[in-house]
């Protein structure tokens, strides 16, 4: 029981933080030099940073920035990627080939490197990081949607709909897209974890939100600068990132197994 719902519990806890924190975020930037580099203590859970700001509330505030941002990036890439993928899987030889070539080209880059290059060119800022990550992450959705669509093209229910003269857009929306939802959602879960890590990594490099905004990447960047005198600064944002990403991955794995079991059933909605 506990093992089964552990990841869901962690996810719900973070979701609660994201929804609850923005209204209670006052004072997270307050500088208190008296407690500079203070070690963790009761009431000051993860200690204080180089300006004496308490780390724990800043970690929660960071979640309120990073999690919605990553969700937005994943949603945008999911929509765009599956649109392109369905188009590439359904359409004729030439346009399909062009789409595949573009996907191959994007896939030929190490994803994080391309996002870093995009963000480096566009300049620092959360919006540019989001744009750069979305430009990179749509490809996996497109690839998956295309592969699935190609497999569905000659399924009986699709052929029947075509024989009945159903317009193509209706076939795609009513008979193809619903069957893609499961695999795409599973992919979205893993992509969510990757995007949160990538966003933190880019903030770590100084490309994301600028100080004093608290994001996990920013806090880890500051922590690394002072790691020789105040190693405890890594713990708060590090644990936060780890717990969230691990929980998402376990949840995604569960979702994948569940979906695989479900899709084996010989039931199809018409």
């Amino acid at each position: 029981m506990k093992r089964q719902y552990g990841s869901l519990l962690v996810l719900c806890a973070w979701l609660f933080c994201v929804l609850w924190v923005p209204r209670h975020a006052a004072g997270i930037h307050d500088v208190q030099l008296a407690r500079m580099f203070a070690l963790p203590a009761p009431g000051l859970w993860f200690g204080a940073d180089e300006l004496g700001r308490a780390i724990a509330p800043r970690v929660l505030a960071g979640a309120a920035v990073s999690v919605p941002l990553a969700a937005g990036i994943v949603a945008a890439s999911l929509l765009f990627g599956s649109f392109v993928g369905i188009l590439g899987g359904w359409s004729g030889a030439i346009s399909s080939r062009i789409i595949v070539a573009v996907m191959d080209l994007f896939q030929a880059f190490p994803g994080l490197l391309l996002a870093i290059a995009f963000a480096g060119i566009l300049g620092p800022g959360l919006g540019n990081v989001a744009l750069a990550l979305a430009l990179v992450s749509w490809v996996s959705f497109a690839r998956l949607a295309r592969a699935q669509t190609v497999g569905l093209r000659y399924r009986e229910h699709v052929l029947a709909a075509r024989a009945l003269g159903t317009p193509t857009y209706q076939i795609l929306i009513r008979h193809v897209a619903p069957l893609l939802v499961g695999p795409l959602l599973v992919e979205a879960t893993f992509s969510f974890a990757t995007t949160i890590t990538a966003e933190a990594g880019m903030s770590f490099l100084g490309l994301g939100a600028q100080p004093p905004t608290a994001t996990w990447g920013n806090m880890l960047r500051e922590a690394t600068q002072f790691m020789l005198i105040a190693p405890h600064m890594i713990v708060g944002p590090g644990l936060a990132l780890l717990s969230l990403v691990t929980a998402i991955q376990i949840f995604g794995e569960r979702l994948r197994r569940g979906w695989r079991g479900l899709s084996d059933l010989p039931i199809e909605r018409h």
Binding site: A193, T197, A200, G201, T224, I234, G238, L241, L242, Q249
Partner: peptide, 11 residues
Amino acid sequence: GATPSFIIGPA
């Protein structure tokens, strides 16, 4: 797989 290098490295 979940720990990014900017956490494991400083640690």
